[in-house]
């Protein structure tokens, strides 16, 4: 099963296409409008630097996870194990550092290595046995959930070295926790790789059509291997960030990031470079959702409205994007 990209045919006309520009920046505009609405409604709470910096800092984990997702999505694979990888990475760090007294750098390395192992396992089953990525990553993700529960004895583990907390949310630059800058740095790296390197082009070609890519001389399996590996490694980094954000690791809550991350990835694919999973669009999408949820929370609106917003925003944004494209057939998934 593949997650094919949904690019429009290349427009030949060199002049500025207003519809195209509108499509590219519609989500950015929506983000600004949404921010403006909440700022007017809640001038003393929402429209404050403290709130903006909190929103930027506390959702870096979701940005990281979305970025992890868009790599295999670009090369045509699903990775449903990213959230479980995040959780097991955070738990590995907590168990090594807080329970077994392993030094923080080593524990972080251990958590990162767990991500590497997951990536290799995913790639092995997908590429060697030719099993659809959806099935393999679903299975591996569930397996990892079991492992995490076993490792942690189903309990939250606190007491992680405070240096990690300081390095993630405890230290602020221009009032914003460092976690935000890590996420932006990661987005910049992926933006560069996707847009300006041959690796990025190959990822895209493989995603568009494996057979064509193979016949063009691209080592398709190798590209897919590294895309799955990078996805798991970035998810493991997200796990380390998560542990640093709350100073603890729990065996379940990380899994709740999976659907928001997918929503942000698909929402992000309607912006900046419409039709392609792209890092800048993903970051915009995450913060669009975060602004909506935070604003609703501050207004004291019941929590079910958050679901309405999550789901509604995704379907509406993709639907509007389709209108601009004159309802061209989508083949994602």
């Amino acid at each position: 099963m593949t997650a094919q990209n949904t690019d429009m045919p290349v427009v030949d006309a060199p002049r500025i296409n207003i519809a195209e520009v509108a499509e590219k920046y519609a989500l950015v505009a929506a983000l600004v409008v949404l921010f403006g609405i909440f700022a007017m409604l809640l001038p003393n709470t929402f429209f404050t630097w403290a709130n903006v910096s909190t929103m930027l800092g506390s959702q870096s984990v979701l940005v990281f996870l979305t970025l992890a997702l868009i790599i295999p999505l670009t090369s045509g694979d699903f990775d449903l194990s990213v959230a479980a990888t995040l959780t097991i990475s955070a738990m590995t760090l907590a168990v090594l550092n807080a329970r077994l007294g392993v030094a923080l750098p080593l524990a972080m390395l251990g958590a990162f290595a767990v991500g590497g192992i997951v990536g290799v396992l995913n790639a092995f089953f997908i590429l060697y046995f030719r099993i659809p990525s959806l099935i393999v990553t679903l299975g591996i993700g569930t397996f990892l959930n079991g492992l995490t529960l076993w490792m942690s004895n189903s309990a939250t583990i606190g007491g992680i070295d405070f240096a990690l907390v300081m390095g993630v949310v405890g230290t602020r630059l221009f009032g914003i926790p460092l976690a935000f800058y890590y996420a932006i740095l990661m987005a910049a790296v992926i933006w560069y790789v996707f847009g300006y390197t041959s690796v990025g082009r190959r990822l895209l070609f493989v995603g568009r059509g494996r057979e064509v890519a193979r016949l063009s001389g691209i080592q398709v399996d190798r590209v897919r291997f590294f895309s799955l590996l990078s996805s798991s490694l970035i998810a493991a980094l997200a796990g380390i960030l998560y542990a640093g954000t709350i100073g603890a690791a729990d065996p379940n809550s990380g899994n709740t990031f999976l659907l928001p991350a997918f929503a942000a990835a698909f929402l992000g694919a309607t912006a900046i470079t419409p039709g392609r999973f792209n890092p800048v669009g993903s970051v915009v999408a995450v913060y669009f959702i975060v602004i909506g949820i935070t604003g609703l929370t501050m207004l004291g609106i019941q929590s079910f409205v958050q679901n309405l917003f999550y789901g509604g925003a995704l379907v509406l944004a993709v639907a509007l994007s389709q209108l601009v494209r004159k309802r061209e057939e989508q083949q994602v998934g």
Partner: peptide
Amino acid sequence: PWQNQGQPTQWVQ
């Protein structure tokens, strides 16, 4: 009440 859906990042917020 701080309405949330059980995510620790929302508690942090």
